[in-house]
């Protein structure tokens, strides 16, 4: 079902609870009563068009905005993605890490195995962090430069340098590797480890990993379906400019 601006935001959340962290990143808090999507966006000074595209891309795997794509400033998308990144780095990853640590402190016999899980998760965390840093330090500055070139119809020295050093194609290539480790961690915890005494906490961790994976998939869909196609279009028109 397509999410539209005159729907009640509460109904939208009922439709897909994974959108709760998404609206939160826009600075929208729960408790909005019967207000529509448009109302809430206006009150929080969120661009309604961008909001709709984003939640629809989150919500529906097959959703692909075409014409609407042109109208959203890259800056908005990048800002949103940065907020998502910081929620991963500052909240989600450390939450899970904390849980693994408390699992470790509780039991004596299984400690060795839990240490394995912990080390594995640390490895995953640093890989994801590295991936995110690459996006923030290389990809985002690149797309912002591309947008600026389009806007001014002109190259500054610095923008030309950035433009020539990278292309969005390179970004598309290296997008899948990080997911592998997360999937492995789930598999190991489900198939090969005997759960420790505190199985409730152990189960929660597995569920958290599933949610994290789901959220990351949503996140990369925004990058792949909203940001990347837009940048490809802009790259083409810059090539014409040259």
């Amino acid at each position: 079902m397509r999410i539209k601006k005159d729907m009640k935001l509460a109904d939208v959340i009922q439709l897909n609870y994974m959108l709760i962290p998404v609206i939160h990143r826009f600075g929208i808090n729960l408790g909005f009563g019967d207000k529509t999507v448009a109302d809430v966006c206006r009150e929080n000074e969120v661009d309604i068009n961008f909001f709709l595209q984003l939640v629809n891309a989150y919500h529906d795997k097959d959703y692909f905005p075409k014409e609407e794509l042109q109208t959203i400033p890259v800056k908005n998308i990048v800002n949103y993605l940065k907020m998502t990144h910081s929620s991963y780095l500052n909240d989600k990853l450390s939450e899970i890490e904390q849980k693994i640590i408390s699992l470790q402190s509780e039991d004596t016999e299984d400690q060795k195995y839990i240490l394995l899980i912990r080390n594995f998760f640390e490895g995953y965390k640093s890989e994801l962090t590295e991936h995110i840093m690459h996006e923030e330090n290389v990809v985002f500055p690149y797309v912002l430069a591309v947008e600026e070139i389009i806007k001014n119809q002109n190259f500054t020295e610095r923008n030309r340098e950035i433009f020539e050093s990278f292309s969005i194609e390179k970004y598309e290539e290296g997008h899948n590797d990080v997911e592998e480790k997360l999937m492995d961690l789930k598999t190991i915890m489900i198939k090969y480890l005997t759960p420790p005494a505190n199985s409730t906490l152990y189960h929660t961790i597995i569920q958290d990993l599933f949610k994290l994976e789901e959220d990351l998939n949503y996140h990369s869909r925004i990058e792949d379906k909203v940001l990347t196609p837009k940048v490809i279009l802009m790259e083409k028109s810059i090539c014409n400019l040259i």
Partner: peptide, 22 residues
């Protein structure tokens, strides 16, 4: 067969099954 792709994942499996020690 194992459903594990990454080297670090395979390593954890190997330790759990005593193929190598930690």
């Amino acid at each position: 067969k194992l459903g594990i792709k990454s080297v670090s994942g395979l390593t954890v499996y190997a330790i759990l099954h005593n193929l190598i020690s930690m």
